[in-house]
Nucleic acid binder design. Sequence first.
RNA 1: AUGGAAUUAGUUCAGUUUGGUAGAAGGCUUGAUUUGGGAUCAAGAGGUCACAGGUUCAAAUCCUGUUUUCCCGACCA
Length: 501
Amino acid sequence: MFIKKEKFLIISRTFFDKLYLRKWGNIMKNKMITSRDIDFAKWYTDIVLNARLAAYSNVKGCIILEPKGYAIWENIQKVLDKKFKELGHQNVYMPLFIPENLLNKESDHVEGFAPEVAWVTKGGSKELEEKLCVRPTSETLFCDHFAKIVTSYRDLPKLYNQWCSVVRWEKETRPFLRTREFLWQEGHTIHETKEEAEKEAYQMLEVYKDLFENYLAIPVITGQKTEKEKFAGAEYTLTVEALMYNGVSLQSATSHYLGQNFSIPFNIKFTNRNNELEYVYQTSWGTTTRIIGAIIMVHGDDNGLVLPPFIAPQQVVIIPIGKEKEVIEKAKEINQTLNENNIVSFIDDSDKTPGFKFAEHEMNGIPIRIEIGPKDLANNQIIIVRRDNYKKEVIPLDIDIVQKIKDTMTIMHKDMFNKAKERNESKTYVCRNMQEVEDVMKTNPGFVKAMWCGKEECETKFKEIKGMKSRCIPFEQEQLDDKCICCGKKAKHMVIWGIQY
RNA sequence: AUGGAAUUAGUUCAGUUUGGUAGAAGGCUUGAUUUGGGAUCAAGAGGUCACAGGUUCAAAUCCUGUUUUCCCGACCA
């Protein structure tokens, strides 16, 4: 009986989806994916799979990054790697395995990560003398190495970064957002002074903010994590928080000031300028492939992925209409001009109908589409269409097409950023009591701004409302009230609260 | 954690109640005609029914265990 009801619901939803196929402006709703307003989680996986960003593997929580997904990661890598190097960082590679004793050296750290580490206990058929942890993060490896190579202030700073994958044995997994193995970058630096290390931690947070806002078109809130939410072993954690279309927040990058918490147990000592022995001051910072999930959930729509133009692996698709020689030649000419000017474009001259191609490239999120047909050539023009708002523009052939595309990408980027920012603002609420928080989160979730006294018991109270947590204590503080929203005692900070992925 | 749903063609699913020849759509291939929002016709290829046991003359179908996915929780980037 119950099963039959379920089946009925599925059938009726299919019917509903079909109704959605009606004309919508001059574009058609995509058949392949669920509407994001009907079922956001389903919409998300539909996009991951249909846009061929990733595929499932045979091991839970381990995804296959397909070419289109990996290309986005490569572009993110290019942006960050360049910036890291400009700021004096060097890339290194540490081993995949961490011996148990090494992991155990910093007690908060091991406590934080122990529940989710994967262990190697056998080599071939032989039990290992000491089991090896598959790195969940590499602080311990870096520290062990730093202790060996640093003796003097002249050896400092060491500014290292590594691109690698790490493993955390999560129970519940989701493509990009939470996988058991994920690709990331982890920076590890050691410094002579507290000031220098803290400056580094803040500087790297700005690097991430720049990536999000100027390449991914994702507005973010920067701030500091509370004691409860900080990285296991850090003095404090700085964070970049983004808000998704459905009002759920995503911790998108973090930068930790570790102080001497690791350098003491790992014995990373140096002789300072006053000829005294001192422990180094340390930072670590990272971001992961999860931000591909953020791109999907911030910009995507019911026709598929929408890629920000400055991170898209393919920026322009040229679609010739029909097979006339002049049309094909014009397409090739434009394609070549764009490619020569550092715009990644390609021609889709497959046998599919134009309508199919439009839908296909919209699914894949290609930022700009150029249509060239016989009618256009007769009028000495081409048509360009923006992925983000579907706006068509007729472009005379005698203008500078490269400049036109570059300008369009710049405007698109700004529009995408502003659209996301406006949505964030409409989903950010100032609350003065817990009832308000509950009302707002139950109807239209998002970020809640509220005052907090600094006590963990008040922080924990939020969990009762849909598992909310503090996201950060933002750098941009506002004095909303004198009292803590929860206990009514004197407030210390304004905190951003939310539901997290 | 516990719980619920699912797992059949590259995809979406039917077939399981009541064991008896492996199905549909769409996708793919080939050819022709097409091409400004998911084309039409014709022919063709494609499945160890997730895995491992068990019951049976006979298992996609019944039983047991496991895998992976989704939902609900707890944890985390």
